[in-house]
Nucleic acid binder design. Structure first.
Length: 495
RNA sequence: GGCCCGUUCGUCUAUCGGUUAGGACGUUAGGUUUUCAUCCUAGAAAGAGGGGUUCGACUCCCCUACGGGCUACCA
């Protein structure tokens, strides 16, 4: 049978990297088995809807190359793919459950229930709307049909699942059989007072109607698996298989990764920009780098290879490589993974993705962009680093690292810089290294110090790419200008 | 509190009863390099604890501890 899996986010905000990974795993699983990957928007909570988050989700998936065959914007045989457009389906299905006495109307108000909750809480217990108490509550279980009709006509009500005593055995492909005593379950609300279904009901109905074969979702759903099983059972439907993925945890501290962790942790939490907050894309990540890192968080193919593209991931993916325990997010490793992908690109490829970052260099050094790229390519962890690494090719240093200057001043700094200046004046920047070397030898000066001084004059700092090549790129006049400038600085400040 | 799931270096992980417990990120030292980075070499670094089962346990079982999740008319 052809595998059909779905990713079913709710559009209550931008997708974060946890959700992105769930989508990715669904996709890898489906494609590995030549199956279908479906996107479904679970927008049944009208209060939490966030504008544009539905399109954000689709954009983000598109960026990482995880594109659904069926979904809200592509359509498909089993649509609509937005739950808010499927209300009639849920109404139809809930009636089946009510008629078969597997679900019932409940008229208890929020106020009634919160009083009961408080009472239980004071006794150190937790209130549960379940089979042991429902007989004494305000619901249709003990009402006449006529009475029910009258009340649902003029009152607001919810529909609850009727959970009976017993043990529910569920199965998770990763964790095996999970047993739950029904007495800890409550009669979950299936249809809310606003007429819309809850997650539990809508997802079961949709997974069934959309012929989903394997449900792959986050571990936070594991506790409600029994409820979902009970709903399938009430309908007499065949269940799909279930896989509950381990959660992505905060890098430091405790708990699952949440949308707020990005700001405090200094790393992006969203794939794409949201409300001016840059995402991975804007930070200079390749989508291939991101998904490579994310794929290896909670899954691995064995072996020591760690760098894969999407195609390779699809080929290798399987549930036997899935991890059960949660995994802490590690931004350092994410950057390293990205760097590995970046290092495989040539300038044209890089430029196509990071044209924004290369723009200033291209306009200032139009014929040398490629050379500049090869000069700094291995230093790039993100696309943004291109700008950081090349600023000195756009403008001279605004100041000099004082500590380094002081250290260098143990030599005869003034003479050294005079000599560098005159060498460049005489011979330019070609064979600069050789000329400086013979100068160092003649005067018995440490060659390293000379190079450091040259670097300082050009960059202002001691870090950066090969300084000889950099000087060649800048050319004689610019290099000389910068050397002169630091010379003045030295004469004025250190006598 | 209750229920469920989990637990190998700081972090991500390999191991599917017999290994000097391997790799990667990070980290430390050395080398290459004019510097930072890259690259190369080396090092430190782990089976939560206690009971079983077994000739033998990181691996299977139980208990404890710890971590995580859920406990809404949110998903």
């Amino acid at each position: 049978m052809k595998e059909r899996v779905r990713f079913a986010p709710s559009p209550t905000g931008p997708l974060h990297i946890g959700g992105l990974r769930t989508a990715l795993f669904n996709y890898l699983f489906a494609k590995n088995k030549k199956g279908s990957f479906i996107l479904r928007l679970e927008d049944t909570d009208r209060n939490r809807l966030v504008e544009n988050s539905d399109s954000y989700i689709e954009e983000a998936l598109k960026w990482i190359g995880v594109v659904p065959e069926e979904g809200p914007s592509v359509g498909g045989e089993y649509g609509p793919y937005k739950q808010s457009e499927r209300i009639n389906l849920y109404n139809e299905k809930i009636q089946i459950l009510i008629d078969s006495n597997n679900a019932y109307y409940a008229f208890d108000t929020n106020e009634d229930l919160s009083v009961l909750r408080k009472e239980e809480e004071e006794k150190g217990l937790v209130f549960k709307y379940g089979y042991s108490v429902r007989g004494s509550l305000d619901n249709s279980l003990s009402m006449s049909d006529k009475n029910i009709k009258e009340r649902i006509a003029k009152e607001s009500y919810v529909v609850r699942l009727k959970v009976n005593p017993g043990i529910t055995k569920s199965n998770d492909l990763l964790r095996g059989e999970i047993e739950v005593d029904n007495n800890i379950l409550d009669d979950k609300i299936l249809i809310k007072a606003d007429g819309l279904p809850t997650y539990h009901f809508a997802s079961v109905v949709d997974d069934y109607l959309m012929k989903i074969t394997t449900v792959i979702r986050g571990e936070e759903w594991l506790p409600s698996l029994a409820i979902h099983d009970l709903i399938y059972k009430a309908f007499g439907w065949n269940k799909p298989s279930f896989i509950h993925l381990p959660l992505i945890l905060k890098p430091s501290g405790k708990g699952k990764l949440s949308k707020r962790d990005g700001l405090s942790g200094g790393f992006p939490i969203f794939p794409l920009e949201w409300n001016k907050e840059p995402g991975y894309k804007e930070m200079g990540f390749l989508s291939g780098g991101l998904i490579n890192y994310l794929a290896l968080l909670g899954w691995n193919p064995g072996g020591s290879k760690e760098i894969f593209n999407l195609k390779e991931l699809i080929k290798l993916f399987g549930i036997s490589g899935l991890q059960k325990g949660g995994a802490k997010f590690d931004f350092e490793k994410a950057k390293w993974t990205n760097q590995q992908h970046l290092s495989k690109m040539n300038f044209n490829e890089f430029d196509q993705v990071f044209g924004k970052n290369t723009a200033s260099i291209k306009s200032k050094h139009p014929s040398k962009a490629e050379e500049i790229f090869s000069l700094i390519r291995e230093r790039l962890k993100t696309g943004q680093d291109f700008e950081k690494e090349t600023v000195f090719l756009l403008e001279g240093p605004s100041g000099y690292n004082q500590k380094v200057l002081e250290k260098l001043s143990r030599n005869n700094l003034s003479r050294m810089i005079d000599e560098i200046e005159s060498i460049i004046k005489k011979t330019g920047v070609n064979s600069l290294k050789e000329n400086l070397m013979s100068f160092a030898e003649d005067k018995k000066i440490n060659f390293g110090s000379i190079m450091q001084l040259l670097r300082l004059s050009i960059v202002g700092e001691l870090s950066g790419p090969d300084i000889i090549i950099a000087a060649e790129i800048l050319g004689k006049s610019v290099t000389l200008e910068r050397v002169k400038k630091i010379n003045t600085h030295i004469k004025n400040n250190l006598s």
